[in-house]
Nucleic acid binder design. Structure first.
Lengths: 99, 99
DNA sequence: CGGGATCCGTTTCGATACTG
DNA sequence: CAGTATCGAAACGGATCCCG
């Protein structure tokens, strides 16, 4: 359990996994969609997620460079659980409308 | 989602929830069972979990004082999801036996 | 016993500038 | 475009002491 949390129990990783979702997506898109994270941190977290086998990274030798990220089967399994968390949240939170 | 993670996406909270489980438990027991966490941090995290409605706190005016914690229905729902995370982990991790 | 208050080292984060 | 390098700020976590 403690180890499990090390892979995903962080501020950013669940959000990154959620943002990638069931598609192939480029670095810049993740960066743009998340809006608030810095490139440095995003890069670090992505690297760790790759090491943990949750996402895969494919680099194309083009100019300008292109790098695509995709959830692995392990990552998709995890995404399912994260989806349950949002359901859990919706169920128990009064939904503050705005703000 | 970002908000959801704020409630549980931390190093300790999931472990605390997991430790409490489906029982009423005293502060000292949680502290002893977790072993490694400091009292200060445990106190802080418990307080936040109470604020998030995940656990409830009951204080008895005795001497020495006694404080009991229990998962709320919301917390029990969350525990179910955390259990799925450990299943996910067992499924995808080769189980390094020792170390 | 269950904290609160302090102090302080470690880790994490973000802004900015730079590169192939 | 997708990073890397550097730096300083901020959050986090632990140790210790105190208190009702």
């Amino acid at each position: 359990m403690t180890r499990t949390m090390a892979s995903i129990g962080t501020k950013w990783k669940p959000i990154i996994i959620y943002t990638i979702g069931k598609r192939t997506i480029r670095f810049g898109q993740i960066y743009a969609l998340m809006g608030i994270i810095s490139k440095k941190v995003l890069t670090e977290q992505l690297k760790e997620l790759v090491e943990d086998g949750i996402i895969s990274r494919e680099k194309f030798d083009e100019l300008p460079p292109r790098v695509e990220y995709t959830l692995t089967p392990k990552g998709i399994d995890l995404l399912r659980i994260l989806n349950m968390l949002t359901i859990w949240n919706d169920k128990h939170n009064p939904e503050p409308a705005q703000k």
